[in-house]
Write a protein that binds this DNA or RNA. Structure first.
Lengths: 360, 360
DNA sequence: TTGTATGCGTTATCAT
DNA sequence: ATGATAACGCATACAA
């Protein structure tokens, strides 16, 4: 602090006024885009070149203006899913000349609450909020009553606030229907959660409850059910595994299904990591992929592996961009609505037509 | 903006003064940790509970105080390498009650310059800077003359500024020596750059030039040379490939080496992606991994694949944390020095002793 | 179009 | 320990 005070050569609008001979009021108007006398503009520009002066954001924020800073809260910046959203957010923010204050809740609701608290005393114009999971921190958001807010990557969390999310049900439907169209009728669904909310046998009963649609797995599960029903395939809870997001969870899911003797010939997973784990383990258990078991997953990009997976493409960067645009509507006093982004099926190497003679 | 002005119920210290009957001066002291009369403290606490009031960061920043906000500029938040550093930065920042303003230069020096420019008019206490590559934007940093600055993940970029980086030379040495100890003497080195600075035949001549040590590949290359020399193995430029950071670059590197007929039996790559590409292609070309060719790479984590790679472990989260600590020294007016983080060899499945009878 | 004067929320100074 | 007041850098109503 001592150092800072000493070295702080930060010049003020007064300094520029003195150097250029133009009044601070005229300077202020100039910086805010109002027209000034050409002769004055010349003087100003000259001094600006020499000094590299920039108006202080803090000072203008005090005056009730926008700071040009928006907040972004993610559960984990390390996870590609959120990193891509963040990338989109920053890209669009840059387009609009805004800065991004980033907070990572590290998967913990406690930390998330802490961040929200800290953000609230900051200089934010608005906040893009990706709740860690169950969104139990909504009460803490009361500090934000007066602040523009957009919820991203989750659906229906906070009433009256715009949400930006994917068409999870559509994705689940596309993935399942694709597998069915390949002649596969025993399709496993591996649902991933940060905090597992219920067992696989409870999933059907619970999936319509109001709080559940904040989970992307649930939305996709609805699409899964819809595709099954459309094809006249009865729902079998033994084909559903409720687990987490990691590689090992995929491994375990494969073993679990094997132990249940349900003999699936198709599987839908929520992430690349789970698909990798599942596939590796399935092979170890003697299944061929994709002949015996075809795999479809949800992801933003084609991931590199020994072979490429068939996947439901998520537009995460666009999600970030749309979030910023939506937030801007709010910041500028306009109305804003939910945005539901489309998903697309990308058929690659892990899904093929069921061979006529499939012994298992 | 209109909306904001209308809804802004942001109360000030004056409001609290009025509500609590305590003067604003006393309030200010209270918020800054000075002691106040117990009866007053009680009144203040009561109102604080009711209102949830927080002092405005912007206002105190104007008064020459620290904002508690530090800046972080990364080339690409999507890349796990930088995401991990960012995670470390945010973790340590949170520990210290600081906020992080994040800028992604998207791999472009143009954008990087833009961000630096924008950051300079912000309310930062300091900046953690990961230059996009060649650091030609240093001139633009003159806006930061007076601002605490730390350069991360690069070495020797800006004189007089603390750098936090890995012991790249040590890593290259460890990786190479490990392969040598397995009886492998024809070790390929696949150097990765964002902008390729020279060809493989020029690498030896150039690696000592001053500007080159900002590239991590170069530092690791030095370690590679050192290990070779120590073992009395002559340097062969045909075993070196200069390329990029992607999966396809690894694929191409394998083909390139094959085309040069150098018959390597060990390889060092800079990233997991390159190693993946290299390995996949090497197998297609008829080599066995790890028997014919053993692979060592640089990475922060054990990556999941069909098998796990032997790797030089990078401590990226710690790198972020150390950067914040170093920056803090500067912010608080103390001296700070470079920090060189150790690396470690983790032997996994992709490196084995050279079989006695290796026909190739 | 320009300049003067006042206010924004906070801290620091100085009496009390 | 407390309270009145000046100051921070900027924006704006108002008078010129």
């Amino acid at each position: 602090m001592a150092m800072r005070d000493i070295e702080k050569i930060q010049l003020s609008i007064k300094d520029i006024s003195r150097l250029s001979g133009v009044s601070i009021a005229t300077l202020s108007r100039f910086f805010n885009g109002q027209s000034v006398r050409p002769s004055n503009e010349a003087k100003i520009q000259k001094i600006l070149q020499e000094t590299g002066y920039r108006p202080s954001i803090a000072a203008r924020f005090i005056k009730g203006h926008n700071s040009g800073v928006i907040g972004l809260i993610v559960p984990e910046i390390t996870h590609p899913f959120f990193a891509l959203i963040a990338e989109g957010v920053m890209r669009e923010a840059r387009n609009q000349g805004k800065l991004v204050l980033l907070g990572s809740s590290e998967g913990s609701m406690e930390i998330e609450k802490q961040i929200i608290d800290r953000f609230s005393q900051s200089i934010l114009d608005g906040l893009i909020y990706i709740p860690v999971a169950k969104a139990e921190n909504i009460p803490a958001l009361k500090s934000f009553r007066n602040l523009p807010l957009v919820v991203t990557a989750r659906k229906g969390i906070i009433p009256g606030v715009p949400h930006v999310y994917h068409d999870g049900e559509g994705g689940g439907y596309l993935a399942t229907k694709h597998l069915i169209s390949l002649g596969r009728h025993r399709i496993a669904f591996i649902a991933s959660f940060w905090d597992v909310p219920c067992t696989n046998t409870e999933l059907l009963a619970n999936h319509k409850k109001s709080f559940m649609h904040s989970f992307s797995s649930i939305e996709r599960f609805k699409g899964y059910l819809k595709a099954l029903e459309e094809a006249g395939i009865p729902y079998n809870p033994n084909l559903v595994v409720v687990t987490g997001y990691g590689h090992m969870h995929g491994v375990d899911a494969a073993s679990e299904l094997k132990g249940r003797f349900v003999d699936c010939n198709g599987v839908v997973t929520m992430t690349q990591a789970v698909a990798n784990g599942f596939t590796a383990q399935a092979k170890r258990l003697g299944y061929r992929v994709p002949e015996d078991i075809s795999v479809v997953l949800f992801d933003a990009n084609e991931s590199k592996a020994d072979y490429t997976f068939t996947y439901i493409e998520l537009h995460l960067i666009r999600m970030g961009q749309e979030s910023v645009r939506t937030l801007n509507e709010l910041i500028e006093g306009r109305e804003a609505q939910d945005i539901c982004l489309d998903v697309e099926l990308r058929v690659r190497e892990t899904s093929v037509k069921l061979p006529a003679e499939a012994p298992r």
